[in-house]
Simulated scan of single mutants.
Amino acid sequence: MKRILFLLLVLSAAACSRPRIIPDEQLAAIFRDAYLTNAYVSREQIDTDSLKLYEPVFDRYGYTAEDVYYTIGNFSRRKSARLSDVVERAIVLLDTEGARYDHEVAVLDTIDRVARRTATRTLRTDTLLRVGRLRDTSLLHFALDSIRPGDYRVTFRYRIDSLDRNTSWRGDVWLERPGRPRPKRFNYTMRRSGSYENYQRTLTAGGEDRRLIFDFSGSNADQALRRPSITVRDLCITYTPPTELAVEEYYHQAAAVRIFADEFFRHAEKDSL
């Protein structure tokens, strides 16, 4: 009896050590993971020629390298199966996974856009500004103090009509910070035409910027400023915080919208005890 038991144990051990046939679906998944491993090694320029690189992949599915070799070699003896079918299945898995990641990236991009749009605030708006006298030019010069990091977008429409006695008009917006006597600014020459012209500019403020200056009150010529005749419509200055802060604020707002209050869940937990 002992000899029989010993023989059975030997046969069982031999059977366990024999390579196994891997089902086609799992083999396709192994091929997919091996491809991703190759792509990672190639991108990171990892210097390796060892076949042990794939052993963690095989082990993840409960197989060994010998099982993979044996399964691939066994395809030549299987009339109803082709290795190319398994490879095509692995490609489908890769495409499906890639599409899912593309979708997730698109969702994250959408969340960023929605969060930034939700967090955007209007700091100043003027529907109509008429500049017909010299003293009216003060309407086109103002400052926003104590600004925060983020994007400041300035938009408006303007028209210089035939009553204006100046050769040309200039102006721009810029950021000021302590210790920077010459802020970076780009002069904008306002066009004279019979229709309204559009202006827009976005400035990104850093942590050291303190003021935003709007100044379209000067002439671009060397001669003294003469009687103006300018109409500015739909002046709007908006502020959008950095994306990270906007997303954080958006999640806080979304978390406050719940079907059940926290008390509901606390009572449910008590009843489940």
Rank of each mutant, 00 (worst) to 15 (best):
125 T>S: 07
113 R>A: 13
133 R>I: 01
177 R>L: 01
138 S>Y: 05
122 T>I: 08
117 R>L: 00
93 L>F: 09
101 Y>A: 00
119 A>L: 09
154 V>P: 01
87 V>R: 03
160 I>Y: 08
132 G>C: 03
128 L>I: 10
138 S>F: 00
128 L>M: 14
95 D>Q: 13
164 D>C: 03
90 A>V: 13
143 A>F: 10
83 L>N: 07
171 G>V: 13
115 A>M: 10
124 R>I: 04
132 G>A: 04
100 R>E: 06
115 A>Q: 11
105 V>A: 12
161 D>P: 10
122 T>R: 09
142 F>I: 05
101 Y>Q: 02
160 I>R: 05
93 L>I: 14
154 V>G: 00
112 D>A: 15
118 T>E: 10
150 G>E: 01
166 N>G: 02
145 D>H: 12
158 Y>S: 07
164 D>P: 06
171 G>F: 13
130 R>C: 01
156 F>E: 00
115 A>L: 09
106 A>C: 05
116 R>V: 03
178 P>T: 06
90 A>W: 09
117 R>M: 00
151 D>C: 14
116 R>G: 03
129 L>H: 01
89 R>S: 05
118 T>S: 13
157 R>N: 13
169 W>F: 03
104 E>M: 15
180 R>W: 14
89 R>A: 08
121 R>H: 12
173 V>E: 07
159 R>K: 14
96 T>A: 05
173 V>G: 00
141 H>I: 09
159 R>E: 09
157 R>T: 14
109 D>W: 03
127 T>I: 01
107 V>R: 14
158 Y>F: 11
155 T>V: 08
168 S>C: 12
130 R>M: 06
141 H>G: 02
138 S>M: 06
173 V>P: 02
101 Y>I: 05
107 V>G: 05
95 D>W: 10
142 F>W: 10
130 R>D: 08
149 P>V: 04
180 R>M: 13
133 R>F: 06
127 T>Y: 00
110 T>D: 08
91 I>S: 02
163 L>T: 08
115 A>K: 11
145 D>R: 08
84 S>R: 14
125 T>W: 04
105 V>P: 03
